[in-house]
């Protein structure tokens, strides 16, 4: 049976309207029931991970070979720089060795409990958020590799974010620059605590500082370990500006071009609040105050 043009137009109108309403309902549902949406997201992530992994490889290879060509041109200058840096680092190595021995002796003296062993998984970034309103990446490791919610994601330079959703073979890392990221930090060498709050810009800001403390450009920012989501002392970044409403921090990690991330398990993941659920499946009300870390709102 042929459908007339008028009928077709009517079907089009109805299906468009129904689907637009359905999309709007999905947005509201996603805001309300995070448990449901996270399990759907994990399933889709797992399904798409092999495809995303495959199509991200050519781009990675292309960028890598471009970098190789560029590095050939600067190899002489780079060599000089590295030789100089090596000399400086050898000096630091001596200092580190001396301090490490001294630290071991002092621990022995004070009978300090040994730190728990730390395990990590290295994962490749296979997708990023693609848009101006979220800062997160997807990596190609999941629960089958030992990845769990709340683990810290590090680059060689510093903290990049934390694992916010986990599938079987893929996981999402919420970057410290995301609008929803809140990390308890401390200014290194002082006892000044603050919350590092992302706002989707390249430099997250230091909020809720002690009223009497001052922060200067160049101050090192490290995690405070408060709330137990991250261990204390992870390098985060340096204060880059102090004018405006709140000081801004330049992260050590090059967050805008991540390729590999180390997901580190410090055994602290259970400190994260369970996301809100309207259907009551295992979700208890998240406690915003206790750890300074809001549950992901998306």
């Amino acid at each position: 049976m042929r459908i007339s043009a008028a009928q077709r137009a009517a079907i089009e109108r109805v299906s468009l309207t129904v689907l637009v309403v359905l999309s709007a309902a999905m947005i509201i549902l996603a805001k309300a029931d995070q448990v449901l949406i996270q399990s759907v997201r994990s399933a889709v992530m797992d399904g798409a991970a092999p495809a995303l992994d495959a199509i991200s490889r050519p781009a990675a290879a292309l960028v890598a070979s471009a970098n190789r060509v560029l590095s050939v041109m600067t190899v002489y200058r780079e060599n000089l720089r590295l030789a100089e840096e090596n000399e400086r680092l050898l000096g630091w190595q001596q200092v580190a060795l001396r301090l490490s021995t001294e630290n071991a002796e002092l621990r022995e003296l004070t009978k300090l409990a040994p730190e728990p062993p730390v395990s990590f998984v290295t994962a490749r970034v296979i997708a990023d958020s693609g848009g101006a309103y979220a800062r997160s990446v997807m990596v190609d490791a999941g629960s089958e590799n030992g990845v769990a919610r709340g683990q810290a994601a590090m680059t060689g330079e510093g903290l990049a974010g934390r694992v916010s959703e986990v599938g079987t073979r893929a996981a999402r890392v919420l970057l410290i620059t995301d609008l929803n990221s809140r990390v308890p930090v401390v200014v290194d060498g002082t006892h000044q605590r603050a919350i590092l709050a992302g706002d989707n810009s390249a430099r997250p800001s230091l909020r809720y500082r002690d009223a009497d403390g001052t922060v200067r450009i160049g101050d090192r920012i490290i995690t405070s370990g408060e709330g137990g989501v991250f261990p204390p002392g992870l390098p985060v970044g340096v204060v880059a500006s102090v004018d405006g409403e709140a000081p801004r921090v330049e992260p050590y990690a090059a967050l805008s071009r991540l390729d590999y991330l180390r997901l580190v398990d410090y055994g602290l993941a259970e400190a994260l609040p369970t996301p809100l659920s309207i259907s009551g499946r295992g979700g208890k009300r998240a406690d915003y105050g206790s750890d300074g870390q809001r549950p992901p709102r998306r």
Binding site: L22, S23, I27, R41, G131, M138, R298
Partner: peptide
């Protein structure tokens, strides 16, 4: 490229990108 396919593609893109699901679909 009927509306249903656009809805599905938009939803998948949002679920994979970490955006609020439904925004690209709409």
């Amino acid at each position: 490229l009927p509306p249903l396919s656009l809805f599905a593609i938009g939803m998948i893109q949002d679920l994979l990108s970490g955006a609020l699901p439904g925004i690209s679909a709409i």
